[in-house]
Design a protein around this nucleic acid. Structure first.
Lengths: 121, 121
DNA sequence: CTCTATGCAAAAACTTTGCAGGGAT
DNA sequence: ATCCCTGCAAAGTTTTTGCATAGAG
């Protein structure tokens, strides 16, 4: 199984909580915060936060702070440019529109803040 | 005086607290959070937050959440692309490196998260 | 007089930490 | 036996809100 290898390759234990988390993140089409998934998991918030922090340190997840005060995470191998609307807080992918490299820097995430098409109208 | 006009043009009262805030922000070369300036102002944090929120709504300041959990603000007429290091939390300007427009959207801020040159080394 | 700005204190929203129990190696 | 993971509860951090007072127009 792919997720199991992903975890074990980082020398982390493959536990039910971690499997559940990565299954959710690998299926997600958008970055997710604890609040987004708490209803579909049986897991303490401390376990959630400790595990996503561990995954982030291992390079499996990327995390960032949105302008709604929550921390969002996504799989590292997914897209990494997003538009976050200051009004509706929706997240949109910008990968096609924004390509960008920066030498000597490690780029994890690109976030564009503003007002989305819908809220502009 | 320029700041006074800036405030009054938005139909806001020109108060000592607001003058002090905009003087600091207009001199700043980087986005600032409450913690960055609390030692140099005589102003309650509630006043700080209420005023930056007012300024943001009036289009004078732009705010965004960094990955250190704090909210940073800068003058709207300053640069709007920054690199934030996940390790040292320093903010660098990227304006020359990153130019980007998006039609139908209002772009307030562009943040690139990652590890800066210094921390990469 | 009315309306907005301010300070203080309390609340709120999210995340992190301490600690004890449990399972795997 | 040890080490890491987990849940629960408590603490921590930053921002927001309620309320009374003060000041400008």
């Amino acid at each position: 199984m792919k997720l199991e290898e992903l975890i074990k390759n980082k020398k982390l234990k493959f536990t039910p909580a971690r499997q559940m988390l990565l299954e959710i993140f690998s299926k997600a089409s958008q970055p997710l915060a604890y609040e987004d998934i708490k209803s579909q998991i049986t897991m303490d918030k401390a376990t959630f936060y400790r595990n996503v922090t561990t995954f982030e340190a291992s390079g499996i997840l990327n995390g960032f702070e949105s302008n709604d005060k929550k921390r969002y995470y996504e799989m590292t191998d997914k897209q990494h440019a997003h538009f976050i609307c200051s009004e509706c807080h929706n997240v949109e992918c910008l990968d096609e529109e924004l390509q960008f490299t920066l030498k000597d820097y490690k780029v994890d995430n690109i976030i564009v803040y503003g007002v989305c098409k819908k809220c502009c109208a």
